[in-house]
């Protein structure tokens, strides 16, 4: 509870400084305010990104001191992120640039996760190899980016699907998840497809009406169908019935 109150004070404080536009959802109990540090060389890009993220209700920490790192950034320190800033931010957002592949990738250290805005899958792979926790396309929309930041802040790893092929291992061979029916259920299904009633099914298979009804209900459940006819259609789609 105390942590929550502190967060609320923080939001109020930052909001009073005119730094964030509070989206209505931020006043919800369960959505913590996030603050991130931007490490973006180009000042225009940095300002644009900061505005866009603030509109999403994210507090963007303006790095005091080295705002436009001129040399290679290998650590948070190189980027001008001092200890006190690192203590406050949840995520560090690194702009990898528009595709100049020779920009050195920083090596994240410490507890604060880094997420990168990258141009292609190869760079994304490099970032992850260095210890980044997220890679998003540079032209992702602010809402997506905000979601990615939230996910990384919560300890998840975020990969833009555009980079999936480069970053993730190759796709598994397709495994057809055929619904498993017991032999008895298959028998009942065949009779269901003929339009037989529970009683008729019971007679045909030598079961009690109660047992037949039990199997029919089980089939409806397995196929997620409301009616017998729907179950037949779904069974056909699953390759369990011929037509």
């Amino acid at each position: 509870m105390q942590a929550y109150d502190e967060r609320r004070l923080e939001i109020a404080r930052r909001s009073a400084k005119g730094r964030i536009e509070l989206a209505p959802s931020l006043s919800d109990l369960h959505v913590p305010a996030r603050s991130i540090a931007l490490v973006v060389r180009d000042p225009l890009a940095r300002r644009g990104l900061a505005s866009a993220l603030r509109l999403e209700g994210i507090a963007v920490e303006e790095v005091t001191g080295n705002q436009a790192p001129s040399g290679p950034v290998r650590t948070a320190g190189d980027a001008g992120l001092g200890a006190e800033v690192l203590a406050e931010v949840d995520v560090i957002l690194w702009d990898d640039g528009a595709g100049a592949g020779d920009v050195e990738v920083p090596r994240p250290q410490g507890a604060t996760p880094w997420i990168g805005l990258v141009a292609d899958g190869a760079r994304a792979k490099t970032l992850f190899a260095r210890g980044f926790r997220g890679a998003v396309r540079r032209d992702a929309d602010p809402g997506q980016l905000a979601s990615a930041l939230e996910a990384v802040a919560r300890g998840l790893v975020v990969i833009d699907p555009a980079f999936g092929a480069a970053v993730l291992p190759g796709p598994e061979p397709v495994r057809d998840e055929t619904l498993h029916l017991s032999p008895r259920e298959t028998e009942v299904l065949e009779l269901l497809a003929e339009g037989l009633s529970n009683k008729e099914i019971a007679l045909e298979l030598g079961l009690s009406p109660h047992t037949a009804k039990f199997h029919v209900t089980a089939l409806l459940d397995k196929f997620g169908a409301e009616t017998r006819t729907e179950a037949v259609v779904r069974a056909a789609r699953a390759g369990l019935l011929t037509l």
Binding site: T186, E187, E190, G239, L240, L241
Partner: peptide, 16 residues
């Protein structure tokens, strides 16, 4: 009217 009994499992296996 309908497939002979027992063919469904056969067909199902083929389909899969």
């Amino acid at each position: 009217a309908r497939t002979p009994r027992g063919d469904e499992a056969h067909a199902g296996a083929h389909h899969a």
